[in-house]
Design a binder for these strands. Structure first.
Lengths: 232, 232
DNA sequence: CGTCGCAAGTCAACACTGTAGATCTACGGT
DNA sequence: ACCGTAGATCTACAGTGTTGACTTGCGACG
C-alpha cells in the first residue's frame, strides 16, 4: 500500500497527449527555441530520455505539436453551403493562429520537409474534409483541390502578414516611434514612414474578410463551378 | 617580403558580403540546420569567431541571408502599367523562391520576430517600391498598402504551397507510391488518395498566374482604384 | 624613434543542445 | 522464485552559440 508511488507529481505513465500539451505550453510561452528536450522533461517531472519512448526524435515532437494545433480546426462537411463553410474555415484558421502565434512557423514550415504521404495524419484531415465538402457540393476532384490550394495559400499568407504586425513599444503614443519606423532614413523610405498611422491601425479580421471576398468572387468568376447562394 | 601572408586561400579581410554569400551557399546546399558558425568559418578559411566582427549574432546573419536573397527582387517603379508590373513582381518572387527553396522559411518566418522598423533595410525595399509604383498610378497611400498586403499574402501562401509539393521517390512511376500516399488509410482519406495523379502533375507557374488573375480581378472589382489596361 | 590606439583574427572555455547505449526498476506470468 | 519485458533513468559524446581574454599588424601622432 504505497502512499505515493514516486516523487512524480502526476499519475501513471506519460502519454503522448500530455507530452504534446506540455510542449505546446512551452512554445506558446517562450517560442520554439524555448523548447528543449531537457526542459520539456523537467516540466513533466520525468527524465528527458523518457520522451524518446513516445517520439523518435525532436522533429517528430514538433510535428506533433503542429498537428495538435491544427486538429482544433473543424470543418462541417455536411453543410451544403460551401462558400460560407470555407469562410468559417478561414475564420477558424485565423483564430487558431492568433491563439498560438509561436506555432505558426511550425505550421507553415514543417510540411516543406515532409512529403504529403508522410505527414502526421491530423495534418491532412482539413484537406480531406474540404475535399469532401466541395465534391459534395458538385465540384470536380481536381477543381476542389485547386480551391483548397487557393484558400490555404491565401490563409498562410494572411496569417503571416498579420502576425508580422507586431509593435516595438506598445505603450508609445506616437505611431512612428511605436512601430520603430523612426529608424528608417527619410530619403529612402518616405512612403512607409508616411503610412505609420495606417500601419498602426491594422485590422486583421476585416482584412481576412476582404481577402475571402476577393477569393470567392474570383473563384465564381473564373472557373466553372456550382453556383451557391451569395454568402455572408 | 612575405611570399604568402598567411595560409588563407583568399585575399584581404573578410567582407560582410563574402560571409553572406558563403552562408547562402551552405544553406542552399544543406538547409538552414546545416549552417553553423563553425562550419561557416571553416568554409571561409577563418576562425569562426571572426564572424562576430561582422554580425552581432547568428540571427543577424540569417536576417542578412534573407535580405540578400530578397534584394534580387526588382521592381520597376517607372512602369505606368501597375497591373503587369505586379504580375512581374509575382513571377520574380516565385523564381527567387524556386532558386533558393531552403531560404524561404527564413523569408516568411524571420519578420515574425522583428518589428517593421527594425528589419534589415533591404527587406523593406520591395514594400517601398511597390508603394511608389501604386501611388504613382493614382492609388491612395492606404489603398496601395492594402494591395501590397494582398499581393504578398498571396505570394507567401503560393510559394509555401508550391514548395510543399515535393515527392518521396522521384523515380517511382506510380503516382501513389511516388508521393508516399499509399501509407494513408483508404477508409479515412479516400479523396486525397484518389487525387494522386492530379497532385503529381502540379504546375506551379500556371497556378501562380491563375492566382494573380483572381487577385487582380478581385481588386478591380471590389475597391475604387484607377483602371488600367487589361494586363497579360 | 617610441608609443598609442584600433581593427582583425585567434584561442580557450562555458553552458547547453539532441541523442545513442547501457543500466536500473517494477510488475505480470509461469 | 525465476524470468522477460516495458518503462524510466543515467552516463557520455559530439556539436552548438557565444563570452572574454589574448595576439598580431598597421597607421597616426608626439
Amino acid at each position: 500500500m504505497p502512499e505515493r508511488r514516486s516523487i512524480h507529481s502526476d499519475d501513471g505513465p506519460i502519454t503522448r497527449e500530455r507530452i504534446l500539451e506540455c510542449a505546446l505550453g512551452i512554445i506558446d510561452g517562450d517560442g520554439i527555441d524555448g523548447l528543449s528536450m531537457r526542459r520539456l522533461g523537467k516540466a513533466l517531472g520525468r527524465d528527458p530520455m523518457t520522451l524518446y519512448r513516445h517520439a523518435p526524435n525532436k522533429a517528430a515532437l514538433l510535428d506533433g505539436v503542429a498537428e495538435r494545433v491544427l486538429e482544433e480546426l473543424e470543418v462541417d462537411t455536411d453543410d451544403g453551403d460551401w462558400a460560407t463553410q470555407l469562410r468559417e474555415v478561414a475564420r477558424g484558421f485565423r483564430r487558431l493562429a492568433l491563439a498560438h502565434p509561436q506555432v505558426v512557423p511550425l505550421l507553415v514550415t514543417r510540411p516543406l520537409s515532409t512529403p504529403l504521404g508522410l505527414r502526421p495524419l491530423g495534418t491532412l484531415r482539413p484537406l480531406e474534409d474540404i475535399l469532401t465538402l466541395l465534391t459534395k457540393a458538385g465540384f470536380t476532384d481536381a477543381d476542389a483541390l485547386h480551391v483548397y490550394r487557393a484558400l490555404f495559400g491565401f490563409l498562410y499568407g494572411h496569417v503571416l502578414n498579420e502576425l508580422q504586425e507586431l509593435v516595438e513599444r506598445p505603450d508609445e503614443s506616437d505611431d512612428l516611434l511605436r512601430l520603430g519606423l523612426h529608424r528608417l532614413p527619410i530619403a529612402e523610405f518616405p512612403l512607409i514612414r508616411g503610412l505609420a498611422p495606417v500601419l498602426a491601425s491594422y485590422d486583421g479580421a476585416a482584412e481576412l474578410e476582404r481577402g475571402v471576398d476577393i477569393l470567392l468572387a474570383g473563384l465564381t468568376a473564373t472557373s466553372t463551378q456550382p453556383d451557391s447562394p451569395p454568402s455572408r
